[in-house]
């Protein structure tokens, strides 16, 4: 276990604190909003649009809720539905040929507002991974804090991936977080991806930042005392 996981880890569902048990707990229990992520094999949905902003992912008029649930119904609302509420058959999420837990999006995904509702909407819809050649900072952080893995690949690989899925919608992708690879099943198409080592540990074990920060209270108070002198 990396050095930064010394101290207390907290399991929300169990409501217990126990440093030695945390690994075991994380193996068997789904934590409140941070599900563990190791490997995912799934079909994918291609969204070949660049600069998808968070207003498209979840329009502001749906941000009035005070809990985290149900945002998936309005994911890409104004692309999925026509103004009269009817389904827009041209939008990829309404295309019966495509399904799966992986969204393969265009460059600069998630730009715009800091609304975490965007990450909630994507996970609530059922996605576990978003693939793009570039992610906006805040969205990337929000995704990681919600167990949604942003996989950043090269533009060339993204383009190959898009073509592959469009020509064969049944294509399965394999996202292996441990080895940091994304590949197309039964094809010679694979790429490594980067992820912050700390965030990787969090994703694999279902840990989150609050757990860690709470274990550092003494240091934080010492910092405050030093700053006020």
């Amino acid at each position: 276990m990396p050095s930064f996981w010394e101290g207390v880890c907290y399991n929300r569902k169990m409501g217990k604190e126990h440093p030695a048990l945390v690994g075991i707990i994380a193996t068997f229990v789904d934590i409140y909003n941070m599900e563990k992520f190791t490997t995912l094999k799934s079909k994918a949905i291609p969204l070949d649009i660049e600069n998808v902003d968070t207003d498209q992912i979840i329009p502001a008029r749906f941000l009035k809720a005070t809990d985290r649930k149900g945002f998936g119904d309005n994911l890409f609302r104004d692309w999925r539905y026509n103004k009269d509420g009817s389904v827009n058959p041209d939008f990829v999420l309404n295309d019966a040929r495509y399904s799966g837990k992986i969204l393969v999006a265009g460059d600069n995904f998630g730009c715009g507002s800091s609304r975490e509702h965007a990450a909630w909407a994507i996970t609530d819809f059922g996605f576990k991974v978003v693939v793009s050649s570039f992610f906006a900072d805040i969205f990337k952080g929000n995704a990681l804090n919600n167990g949604l893995l942003p996989v950043q690949v090269s533009k060339a690989f993204l383009s190959d991936l898009q073509s592959c899925i469009v020509s064969h919608p049944e294509t399965e992708l394999i996202v292996d977080l441990e080895n940091q690879t994304i590949s197309v099943k039964d094809a010679d198409l694979s790429e490594d991806f980067e992820i912050d080592a700390y965030k990787k540990t969090c994703m694999i074990n279902g840990y989150d930042d609050i757990d860690y920060l709470l274990s550092k209270k003494e240091k934080i108070e010492a910092f405050e005392n030093a700053a006020s002198n």
Binding site: S113, S114, R115, E116, A119, I138, G141, N142, N145, N146, D208, D209, I210, L213
Partner: peptide
């Protein structure tokens, strides 16, 4: 700007 999980942090 930060996300809501960070607001909680």
């Amino acid at each position: 700007g930060i996300g809501t999980s960070q607001v909680a942090q």
